[in-house]
Design a protein around this nucleic acid. Structure first.
Lengths: 344, 344
DNA sequence: CGGTAAAACGAAATCGTTTTCGTTACGAAA
DNA sequence: TTTCGTAACGAAAACGATTTCGTTTTACCG
C-alpha cells in the first residue's frame, strides 16, 4: 500500500541502502551484478524516489509558481500554455494561482508560494496592485522572480513585455493612414502600466500627425469582467458626444467587440462609418463579423520566454553566480482585418 | 541568505529545537514567556517552516495534480478556475499539465505527478486515450483520482460529468419544437464518450419525434485546433449534399460559429434559412452575431465539484476509511439566442 | 605466499521538522 | 527532610534519499 523505499529494496536484497541508491544512480563503485539486481527489483516493486526526501536534501522542488490576474482569458491562458510547455521540457512543474485582480490576494498567494518553497516565481500583476513590498520580499529571499505583461517598473527583476506604447502608436497610425480624421480612444483603467502606455502611444501618434489631442475623446473602461458591456456603453456615449468620430483605437479586443456590436445595433456601420482597431488579437477577433483589426500580442511566446528567463536565473542561483536581470521586449504586429478600411 | 530554520532560532535563544517547534505550534508544555519570545524572534527572522521537511514527515504535500487536454479553451480554463478557487479554500495548491490530446503525453504526465507525490489527481482524458492502464496505476497506488468531462466509464473512480445525451436530446428537441423538418448533426470525433453520447441524444430525439434518422446528415469534426475551419468546411459540404436542411445541432460552439460564418458568406441566413444550436456556451457565443443558441456546460461548477469530491477522498484515505466513488451529473441548460427561430 | 592496488560495499551524517518519552527543577504536602 | 506532583524543557528517533569517507573483499603481481 505504502510506496516502496530504498530500505525495502535493500532489506530484500540484503545489501545496504547506500548501495541501492548508488546502483540506481549509476555510480561506478557498484558491481554490474548488483546494479542489475537492484534495477530489476526496483522496477518490480515500482520504486519511485520520494520527492519529499529528495527536495529536502537538495533544497529544490523543481517546481515554479505562477500568478496571473485571471485564468479564463485568451491572452493569459496562452501565456500559461507557453510557460507549461517550456517548463515541462526542463523538468519543472508549474503551480498556478490567480489573483482575481486583487492586490490582497496577490500578496497572500506570493506568500503561499514562498512557503511552498518553489524554485522561482512568474507573475503578472493585478490591476489593483500599487504597493510592491510583497515583490521585494521575494527578491530578499533570493528567489528568482520574473514579471511579464503587467509589470512594476520599480522592481529590480527580469521582465518580459511588449512595447505597448509603440504598438498603440502603430495601431493609431494605421487609423491615420487609412484616412481617419477624428480618432477616439477607449483606454483601460488608470493604474496598470499597459493602459497608460497604450494611451501615450495613441497620444503621440496624434501629435506626430499634427492632429489635435482631445481628452474628451478618451473613454475609460475597467477591462474586467464587464469588458464587453463597457464597450457597448462607451460606444453609445461616444455617439452622443462626438458623432463625427471616424476611427477608434480600443485598449482591448473584447471592449472593441462590445463597441462593434453596439454600433451595428445602432445602425452605425463598421468599418464604413467608423474604423476600429483592438488590442491583443483574441482568437474571437478572427471569427466575428466583421473580423477585427488588432495588435497581435504573442501570449504563447511570452510565456515561453518568461520561463526561459526564470530558468536561467534559477541556474545562476544554483551555481552561486550573481543573478542578472533582463528586460525582454517582444515584437507585436498589426493584424489588419475587416474592421478598418481606407476612407474614400 | 538561506531561510531561517528552527535550529537557528533555538541557538539564538539558547533553547532546544523541540521547544521552539512546540512554542510555534502552541503546545501547552511551553511557558508563556518562552512562547512569546519564540514567536517574536520567529517573526523577526521571517521564519517559515520548511515545507520539504514537513512534507517528508507528514507524507502529504497539500498539492494536487490536474491534467487537461488543452488550456487555451474556454471550457477548460473555466474548469481550472473552479478547481483552483476551491483548492485554495482548503489550502491546496494545483499543479497543471496539459496532454495536448495525446495519450502518450497523458501517460507520462500522470507518472510525473505520481513521482511528485501529489495528494490526488484530477483528469479530463485526451481524445486519443483508448488504453486506461495508466489510470489504474494511480488507483493501485491508493491515490485519489477524479475524472471530469472526458471520462472512461471502465475506471473505478469518482466522476463529474454532464448528461451529454440528455443535453443533446434537449438541443435537438428545441430544433424540432421550432418547426425544423430536416435536422443535421455535426458530431465530434469517434472516440470520446461525449461526442458519442451527444450523437445518441440527437438520434433519440429524432426517433421520438417520428423523424427519420439519416446517417448522411451526420458530419464528423475532430474539434481540435481546426474546429472553426471544420465548421466552415462541413457547412459547405452540407449545402452541397442537402440544401433543404433547416436545422443543425452542432457538437461544439466553435464549430457552430465556423458554420454560421460560412453560411453568412454563402448567403444562407441564420436563423431564417437554417437554425443552429451549438454546445458548451463559450463566452464567444454570446457576443457574435447572431448570438448562438447553445447548451450551457457549467465549467466553473464542474471544477469546483471535482475538487470537492477529490478532497473528500483525500480525507477518507488520511483517516484510513474506505474510499467511496461517486458519479456526479451536473445540470445543463438550453440557452436560446438568436441563431434559432420559430419557423413561419 | 605476502603485499598492494583496485573494486565493491557500508556506516553514518545530513537535510529540517515533529513528537514521544524522558529528565530536571521546584513548590507543596506529609 | 522526604516524597510527590507538576510545569518546563530537551534528547533522540523518525521521515527517505544521498554522499562522504572508511572498511572489506577481490585480484593480481612479484
Amino acid at each position: 500500500m505504502k510506496p516502496t523505499t530504498l530500505k525495502q529494496i535493500a532489506e530484500l536484497l540484503d545489501i545496504s541502502t547506500s548501495t541501492v541508491s548508488k546502483a540506481l544512480k549509476g555510480y561506478s563503485d557498484v558491481s554490474e551484478k548488483t546494479k542489475r539486481l537492484v534495477l530489476e527489483t526496483a522496477k518490480l516493486m515500482n520504486y519511485r524516489p520520494n520527492s519529499f526526501a529528495v527536495n529536502l536534501r537538495t533544497s529544490e522542488s523543481k517546481t515554479i509558481g505562477l500568478i496571473v490576474p485571471e485564468i479564463v482569458h485568451h491572452f493569459f491562458s496562452s501565456v500559461i500554455k507557453g510557460i507549461i510547455s517550456q517548463a515541462e521540457k526542463k523538468g519543472y512543474l508549474v503551480i498556478i494561482l490567480q489573483s482575481n485582480e486583487s492586490y490582497k490576494l496577490e500578496k497572500k498567494q506570493l506568500d503561499l508560494l514562498l512557503s511552498q518553497r518553489v524554485d522561482g516565481i512568474l507573475i503578472s500583476l493585478a490591476n489593483g496592485t500599487g504597493n510592491f513590498d510583497h515583490l521585494n520580499d521575494v527578491l530578499l529571499q533570493n528567489k528568482p522572480l520574473v514579471m511579464f505583461d503587467k509589470i512594476a517598473k520599480i522592481i529590480k527583476c527580469s521582465k518580459v513585455i511588449i512595447d505597448d506604447r509603440k504598438a498603440a502608436y502603430t495601431a493609431t497610425q494605421h487609423l491615420v493612414d487609412i484616412g481617419c480624421k477624428k480618432i477616439a480612444h477607449f483606454r483601460g483603467s488608470l493604474l496598470p502600466q499597459n493602459s497608460i502606455d497604450r494611451f501615450l502611444g495613441y497620444k503621440q501618434a496624434l501629435l506626430d500627425n499634427n492632429m489635435p489631442y482631445d481628452s474628451s475623446l478618451v473613454y475609460i473602461c475597467e477591462c474586467g469582467d464587464r469588458s464587453f458591456v463597457e464597450g457597448k456603453e462607451s460606444a453609445r456615449k461616444l455617439l452622443n458626444e462626438h458623432n463625427d468620430v471616424d476611427g477608434i483605437f480600443i485598449n482591448t479586443d473584447l471592449v472593441a467587440i462590445g463597441a462593434m456590436t453596439e454600433f451595428q445595433k445602432l445602425g452605425v456601420k463598421v468599418p464604413e462609418d467608423i474604423s476600429i482597431v483592438g488590442f491583443s488579437n483574441w482568437f474571437m477577433s478572427s471569427v466575428i463579423s466583421p473580423t477585427l483589426t488588432t495588435i497581435d500580442q504573442p501570449g504563447y511566446q511570452m510565456g515561453k520566454t518568461a520561463f526561459k528567463r526564470l530558468y536561467k536565473e534559477i541556474q545562476q542561483i544554483k551555481r552561486n553566480e550573481t543573478v542578472t536581470h533582463k528586460k525582454i521586449v517582444l515584437d507585436t504586429a498589426l493584424v489588419v482585418r475587416e474592421s478598418t478600411i481606407e476612407a474614400k
